[in-house]
Structures are given as structure tokens and as C-alpha cells.
Design a protein around this nucleic acid. Sequence first.
DNA 1: TGATAAGCGAGACGGTACGTCTCGTCTTCCG
DNA 2: CGGAAGACGAGACGTACCGTCTCGCTTATCA
Lengths: 207, 207, 207, 207
Amino acid sequence: MWSTKEPGAGGDGILSHPTGPRSDRIHAQVLAATQELLDEGGLPAATVDAIAQRSGVSKATIYKHWPSRTAVAAKAFGHMMAEELPLPDTGNSRDDLTEQVRRVSTFYASPRGEVFAQLLAACVDDPAAAPYFRVYFLAGRREAVTTLWQRAVDRGDASPDTDVDDVIDILFGPLIFRRLTGHYDLTDEHAEKLARTALDGLMRSTV
Amino acid sequence: MWSTKEPGAGGDGILSHPTGPRSDRIHAQVLAATQELLDEGGLPAATVDAIAQRSGVSKATIYKHWPSRTAVAAKAFGHMMAEELPLPDTGNSRDDLTEQVRRVSTFYASPRGEVFAQLLAACVDDPAAAPYFRVYFLAGRREAVTTLWQRAVDRGDASPDTDVDDVIDILFGPLIFRRLTGHYDLTDEHAEKLARTALDGLMRSTV
Amino acid sequence: MWSTKEPGAGGDGILSHPTGPRSDRIHAQVLAATQELLDEGGLPAATVDAIAQRSGVSKATIYKHWPSRTAVAAKAFGHMMAEELPLPDTGNSRDDLTEQVRRVSTFYASPRGEVFAQLLAACVDDPAAAPYFRVYFLAGRREAVTTLWQRAVDRGDASPDTDVDDVIDILFGPLIFRRLTGHYDLTDEHAEKLARTALDGLMRSTV
Amino acid sequence: MWSTKEPGAGGDGILSHPTGPRSDRIHAQVLAATQELLDEGGLPAATVDAIAQRSGVSKATIYKHWPSRTAVAAKAFGHMMAEELPLPDTGNSRDDLTEQVRRVSTFYASPRGEVFAQLLAACVDDPAAAPYFRVYFLAGRREAVTTLWQRAVDRGDASPDTDVDDVIDILFGPLIFRRLTGHYDLTDEHAEKLARTALDGLMRSTV
DNA sequence: TGATAAGCGAGACGGTACGTCTCGTCTTCCG
DNA sequence: CGGAAGACGAGACGTACCGTCTCGCTTATCA
């Protein structure tokens, strides 16, 4: 499985290249500029030229640190989303998970949710960027749900035999499907219904 | 909700422009050429220039009939997938649905599944193409599952109160999620496990 | 030499095709529409589609009557310029010719002079249109100067041996040269100087 | 007046953009390719795509160096004509000028004269290209005649008060007029007659 | 401290597809 | 059956973004 821990600069294996003090400055500037651009105009606005111009880092240097513009954007997006979405904690495992589904649904429907969808889409055509999206964004999201699920297991509300990866896919896959195809709007009501049905299958022991 | 019936020539509302006998020839030629290109090199190969050249239809004409190359590809893909995936019929509703999930999982992992993912991704950045993908491809897939689910309801294996759209999202959303992020391979075993868990929540009365 | 007489409908040899009352209506509508377009936006505005739309005559029909859009424009332009530029008549041949040069210079510098230049240029790349420009526009201009020159000959101010075609070329060729290359503005002073020098060579007997 | 000196790379004001060693290579390749195309098929053959393909320089780069294909062609044409047409030197000013007129007339009637006419015509609809044609082609031609005229002045055959620009226009404007409208062929006899008449006005003191 | 090499900014460049435009032909159907 | 309407093929246009490259300047490390 892909690593879920936040890699430090220079310690993320295949995902980074140069090292040292200059490198740190470059990373910071590029990511900051990219975050601005993503917020202003989504992925389409985060062209390499735009990032280079705004960050003051040259295109050549960017390509020495990242394999593609999508990779840059994925990492920048992961960092800007890191502090968002604090975990719910109602004392009830099922309620916590339901609330999390609702929050993610709301996020998908927001402007940054649009960026999320663009990034997910871009990774399809850019295999080199996919690991960046997984490590710097998805890992954090999965970790959050893993925490909630572990609580449920600890409380005896869920079976320790159920693979948390399946839990994640079943709870959030449907939301992503809807977000991408656009065949339905993402509403709180819908998110709750989805969570209820999914959790019925996942946490049947709690019924 | 978006229509699920296959629109006839000239009868698909916003999705087509010119009409008449000449139009029919153009549609046939363009779609045939696009299908070939999709099979040969996926969405990236289906450039408007390539489609124009192979079909003998000029670019300008293509743009009169479709809003973008993604829309052309979506319709072509829908047509080429129309006859695939016959419905399973084991006599057992739950087995049928499980088998369908397995088949779709296999499809997603195939070359044409790659095209599916590319199309889904392309629609994120091309809102005009999204309805084409929904009407000409997704609708057919949803219809198939709707049939299976209806059987289950008729047999008393499922509640008529459950919205089939939710069923579809829960059964296939997770597969799509995995297909897009690539964080796991799509295996038969995994598909079965997913189906089992999801159906536990959806068809609890059958337990 | 090319004919200088205004050809009647159906009587201008290679320059026209259909005949009859319907033809007359079509000619009138097309030329009127084209004249409007030329005045509004010059030659670039007189596209075949625009002419067809404004005149109510179909493109196919236009191409039955003229070999190209430039030919249409040339004829339309000739007709709209037919009444302009009355001949000067000061009683002095040399003054008349000088005045004519000045007037033509002014015309070249006007908006319609721009159209003249565009038409002249278009005929370079459209041999089929050239005769239309010569017959329907240039012939009329040359005829005017021929009249002036004949007066001079009759008065004994010019030699009957001098070919009037050479006179025309020498008097107006320089203006056209300047108009096309744009290396100088066309001013009255310049036109007069040009006429003076040229007429010194052409009408030496008058010195 | 516009400059008549051949501008060096990077020193031609509005007429060029990038500079440096890479730029030199691009200019050389593009102009060489364009010259070939002009000789093979005239201006219509010198499309930007064709120039790009043959020169190995991308379209985008061409558009960074020149405002339009006409500008490229004008410069290429100027360079390929630079060595042509050595000055006549018979010892007699009037004969030299007459000979020059004859040579230019012959040139206009040649295949490259056709290109000249196409270029002149194209500049009418492409104001951005006009300065290129003036600087890189016309300037050289005017310079040649200026030399001949200066000789005449030095020998006392012509008045120093006569503006050489007028001389040029009167000697060559008529040829251009005929070349463009095509109302007469360009023959040696005609050129001589034209030169004789024009020079009668210009060099009357020599009679 | 000064040399040497690597990192870097600036931006030119080739490549490739885009979506648009106008021409002149061809088809369809109406009066 | 002539003509209006307009679909159509052809092919050039000029633009956008990608990712690579070349060029000097700057910075960091080692002689």
C-alpha cells in the first residue's frame, strides 16, 4: 500500500529531487503561488508559466522538483487542505462517520471540491502525478476516517475484521462518482441517506 | 433526472444540431472513426484532427454537430459499449448483482476501462461533454443495474423504498474511486468483497 | 485590348452567365447588398455569406452569375463609382488633367480608395475577377481621362501620336504605387507636383 | 521617410522581437525555407504551416519573430532579391535609367515578379507586413535608382531640385499599375516608351 | 579568499492540438 | 425546375500550454 505518512522534505522517496536550503525556499514559493492560483481559477489557472511567474521560480527549476504541473498542484492542494476538516467527535461512532460523510459531501460541492475533482481527473492522464495526489492529499483524508473507524472498533461498534480501506471506498466512492458525473447534486440529505445505507452494511452489528 | 432512453437522431434535445440524411451519414462516419481511434490509443488519440481525417468529415462540420471532441468521444464510446456486458441471470438476485459488480470491475481494469476513466476525467473539465457521457454511456449502464434491482424487488429480496440511484452509486462508486486514484488494483476478490459489504447494507432483508 | 464600353446584361462575353428577368432582379439585389457591405467594412466585409444573407440570393446562385466574390465586389464597386468624379473643365487642358490627378489622389486616400486598393490587390490572386475590375471600374476611369486627353489633342496641346494608355499609366501609376506601398501619404501638393512633372514629359509641346 | 538601410539583427526597431544567437539560427532557417516556398509556389505556397515544417521552426516561434506570414515572406523576398539586378552603367545617365526600367519591367513579368505583385497585394490587407516589404525589399530597389539618379545629377543631366522619390514613382509606378491590373503585357518596347516619355518630363534639360 | 561547480531565473524553443474562419461546391426542399 | 437555405470539405489561421533547452548570474563549497 502507498504510504500514508506525511513525507518530510527530501524524505518522500520517488516524490522529490534536490535537497538543501535553496530547495526549501523553492518548495515554499512554488506551493504558495500554486495555492493562490488554485483558489483563484482552479487547476486550469495553475499553468506552469503562471506558477513560475508568480513564484519567481523558473520553469526549469520547477521541473527539477516535480514531474509535472499536476504533481505540483496535487502537493499544493494537499498542503492547503491539511488543516481543514477537523474530525467530528459526538461520542457516537456511527454519528461521527455520518457527519464525516456529510462534511466531505459539502466539501465536494464547494469551489475547492471542484479543484479536487479536477485534480482527480488530471491524475488519470498523468500517472506521474497520481502518487503526489495520493500521498499529499488522499492519505490525509484516509487517515482521518481511519481514526474514526478505529474508534468504532475500539467501542465494539465495528468489526476489526473489516478492512478500513473498504470502509473508505464505500463511504466516499459514491460521493465522488456523483461529483464527477454530475448526474445529481450533492446535498446533505443525500449524503446522510448514503451514509446510512452504507453503514448498515458496514456496521450491521450496531443495529 | 437526465433521460435514460437512447435519443433518436434529431430527437436528443440539446445534444445535437443539424438534422437530415446528410447528418446521418456524418454521425455514422464520425462515430465509427472515433471508435477506432479510442480502441487504438484511448482518448488522447481521438483528437479532432485525427477524427476528421479518418472519417472524411471536416473539423468545422464536427464542431457543428458536437460541442467538443470529448462529446464526440463520449457518444462514440457509448455506442461501442452498448452491446457489451449482457445481464447476469443466475436466478438469485444477490448473486446477479455481485456478478455485475465483478464484471464492471473487470471492465474498469481493461483497456476500454481506461478509456472510460479518461472520459470521466475529461468531462470534469468539459461541462458541455458531460451530458453526452451521461446520456450515451452512463444511462445504459444504470439501466442495466436498474433491471437487476427491479428483479430483486419483484422477488422480495429488496425493499421497493430503496432508491435505485443510491444502489448504483454505492455498488459502483467505490470501484470508480479505486480506478481513478489507482491506490489499489481492481481484482475479482476485491470486487466481491465490496459487493458483499454493500449489499449487506442494501439488501439486509435477505440475510 | 480590353473593352472599355459598359457591357449590357448578358452582353459582356465571358463576364456573365444567365439572362432574363429573374437574372436582372438577382443582379440588382446582389450588387446593392455588396455595395452596402463594401461601404460598411471594405472588401473583407463582403464575404459571400454576407452578400447572400443580405441580398436574399443564395450562394449557389451567386456563383452561377459570378466566378468569385472578388468579381462580385469589383462589379458592385464599379457601379457605385460610376457617377462619381465628374470631369473637370477649366478650359485649359493641362489644368484639367492636373485637377483630375488631384481628385484621383484624394479618392485614393478616402475610405472608398481603400476599397479600390483592396480590390486591386484581390485581383492579383484572383485572375477570374480581374476582368470584372477592368471592365466595370477601370474602364470608366480610363474613359474619363481619354476624354480629357482628346480635348488636349483637339486643342493642339498634345500630340495625337501619344498613346492615351501611356498617359493614363504615367499620370496615375505613381499614385497607385504610393497608395499600395504606403511609403508616402497622398497629398494635394504631391499630386500636383507629380502631375506637373509627368505632363512636362507628356505635353512638352505646350511649354 | 522610412529607413533604407538594411537593419542588422536586433537593430531594426519595430520589425523584430527576440535577439541573440538562437534567434539568428531561427531567422536564417525560416527565411531560407520561405524563399524556397516562394520560388516553388509563390506567396500562396508560403503558408505558416509550410514554413514551420520546412524550416523546423515552430509556428509559435515564427509568430514571436514576425507579425504575420506576409511579413516573413516580404523579408525573405527582400533577401533573395538583394543580389539581383546589378546597376546598368553605360556612361549615359538617360540610357542607364531606361535600361533600369526595362530590367524592372522584365522582372515584373517573370515568376518572381508575380511574387512581387502578390506581396504588394498582400500588404494592402496586412498593414503589419507593409513595413517589412518597404524596408527589406522596396528600400533596396529605391536605393539603386537613387544611385543612378545621383549620377545624372552629378553629370548635370538632371536637376538636383527634382525629388528622387518622385522620379522613382513616375518611372516605376506605371509598370506596377500594368502589372497589377493586367490590362497590358509588360514588353521591352512598352517599357522603353514609358521610360522615354517619363524621362522627357524628368530630364528635360537633356533634350 | 578565490576558484569551481552546481543551482537557478529568464525565457526562447519545438511540438501538438485547439477552435475558428472563409471559400466554393453540393444537397435538399420549397414555390 | 430555378432558386433559397445552408450543410459540407478543404485547409490556413493564430493561440495556448506543455516540457526541454540554452544562457548567464548567483550561491555554496572546496582548494
